[in-house]
């Protein structure tokens, strides 16, 4: 554990909490892609199956359980509790276009051809593209509430901090997880355009912003 990894995990947690609290307080999930949230729940589910097989640390276990619980709570709020406010007409990204290649790739490129490893690889690849329905939705509607932008900012920050963590771990302990690093870098690139707009528009007080 290093400071970058810890800060990355905390940004990830903050992002998830921002989204959950926004939906809970406004009693509405307008502008939120339910599809992205289902994909993130699927990411956590397939990645954290090792909760049952290996113990790494109390921190690790607690965070996994928290992420799982929060992601399912978010999906519940969107599709059950506040489903009347769910903007399904603009959440039209074809998820199968992500799932099919990601499933295929996780069978081809993995550390070990076992169900657990294939599912772990699937979760890593899927996480790198899971935000695309949300970004697609913002592009389609032309704008997002600033709170949605804060959510995306912290998600992107989490990815950026993980990259710094990998550079740190490579130099200090020779750690290099090729699958995680390559897909992590790809994932972070998706946020770059958003980051630029966030800094230039949201932080300068306009509140709302639109993606080109």
């Amino acid at each position: 554990m290093n400071i970058f990894r810890l800060a990355g995990d905390m940004s990830h947690l903050v992002a998830i909490l921002i989204l959950l609290l926004k939906i809970w307080r406004s009693r509405s999930c307008a502008g939120i892609s339910g599809k992205s949230q289902v994909l993130f729940a699927l990411v956590f589910t397939t990645r954290y199956l090792d909760l049952f097989t290996s113990f790494i640390s109390a921190y690790n276990t607690v965070m996994k359980v928290v992420f799982l619980a929060l992601s399912y709570a978010t999906v519940y709020l969107i599709y059950m509790r506040f489903r009347n406010s769910y903007d399904s007409e603009n959440d039209t990204f074809r998820v199968e276009f992500l799932l099919v290649p990601v499933i295929g790739l996780s069978f081809l490129e993995n550390y070990s051809f076992t169900p657990m490893e294939i599912l772990w690889t699937f979760s890593i690849f899927l996480e790198s593209v899971a935000i695309m329905p949300q970004l697609f939705m913002i592009t389609k509607t032309g704008e997002a509430e600033s709170i949605t932008n804060h959510y995306l900012f912290f998600l992107g920050l989490y990815r950026a901090l993980y990259i710094v963590n990998w550079v740190w771990r490579y130099h200090t302990e020779g750690f290099f997880d090729q699958i995680a690093v390559v897909s992590g870098v790809v994932q972070t690139i998706f946020y770059c355009d958003f980051f630029y707009l966030y800094v230039t528009r949201v932080l300068r007080g306009r509140g709302k912003m639109s993606l080109p």
């Binding site: 990894r5 995990d9 990830h12 990645r47 090792d50 290996s54 790494i56 640390s57 690790n60 965070m63 996994k64 992420f67 550390y111 070990s112 076992t114 657990m116 490893e117 772990w120 993980y162 963590n165 997880d177 995680a180």
Partner: peptide, 10 residues
């Protein structure tokens, strides 16, 4: 198990 990496990141 042998040969399988331990994934210690979240």
């Amino acid at each position: 198990a042998d040969g399988e990496p331990l994934h210690d990141e979240l």
